[in-house]
Amino acid sequence: MGTSDTQPDAIIIGGGHNGLTSAFYLARAGMKVRVLEARHVVGGAAVTEEFHPGFRNSVASYTVSLLQPRVIADMGLVERGYRVIERPVSNFLP
């Protein structure tokens, strides 16, 4: 890896919203953190993806609505563009 200055104090496996939140708090506590993610994009269930040209859908962002208000404030997510969009219609997937 190199010298001890470049070695992380913590390694987070998975760059989903839980991994990123953990990395944030560890880094804020002064730790050097490395996040490893297998996909080309981070965010996990908080990702919106294009499933057909011109059509985008949340992969499971309903779980992000469970994000604690304190986490949203601590991370300054609203200032970084975070917003919850509530749908007037629910999905039905038999």
Rank of each mutant, 00 (worst) to 15 (best):
Met1Cys: 06
Gly2Ser: 13
Thr3Ala: 11
Thr3Met: 09
Ser4Thr: 07
Ser4Trp: 10
Asp5Ser: 12
Asp5Thr: 09
Asp5Met: 10
Thr6Asn: 10
Pro8Leu: 04
Asp9Ile: 03
Asp9Glu: 05
Ala10Val: 14
Ile11His: 03
Ile11Arg: 02
Ile12Met: 13
Ile12Ala: 13
Ile13Lys: 03
Gly14Phe: 09
Gly14Ile: 03
Gly15Ala: 04
Gly15Arg: 00
Gly16Arg: 00
His17Thr: 12
His17Ser: 13
His17Lys: 01
Asn18Cys: 13
Asn18Gln: 09
Leu20Lys: 01
Leu20Ile: 06
Thr21Arg: 09
Ala23Asn: 03
Phe24Met: 08
Tyr25Phe: 11
Leu26Pro: 00
Leu26His: 08
Arg28Ile: 01
Arg28His: 08
Lys32Arg: 15
Val33Phe: 08
Val33Ala: 07
Val35Leu: 04
Leu36Tyr: 07
Ala38Pro: 05
Ala38His: 08
Arg39Leu: 14
Val41Thr: 15
Val42Ser: 12
Gly43Cys: 12
Gly43Gln: 13
Gly44Ala: 05
Ala45Asn: 08
Ala45Gln: 05
Ala46Asp: 04
Thr48Val: 12
Glu49His: 08
Phe51Asp: 03
His52Trp: 12
Pro53Thr: 01
Pro53Asp: 06
Arg56Met: 06
Asn57Phe: 13
Asn57Gln: 12
Asn57Tyr: 13
Ser58Pro: 13
Ser58Phe: 05
Ser58Ala: 10
Val59Ser: 04
Ala60Thr: 10
Tyr62Lys: 02
Tyr62Phe: 15
Thr63Lys: 02
Val64Tyr: 10
Ser65Ile: 07
Ser65Gln: 08
Ser65His: 10
Leu66Ala: 10
Leu66Trp: 13
Gln68Cys: 07
Pro69Glu: 07
Pro69Ile: 01
Pro69Cys: 00
Ala73Thr: 11
Ala73Ser: 12
Ala73Phe: 10
Asp74Arg: 07
Gly76Ala: 01
Gly76Glu: 02
Leu77Lys: 06
Val78Tyr: 10
Glu79Ser: 14
Glu79Ala: 15
Tyr82Met: 15
Arg83Ala: 15
Arg83His: 14
Val84Thr: 12
Val84Arg: 14
Glu86Tyr: 11
Arg87Asp: 00
Arg87Leu: 02
Pro88His: 02
Val89Asp: 09
Val89Tyr: 14
Val89Thr: 11
Val89Met: 05
Phe92Thr: 07
Pro94Asn: 06
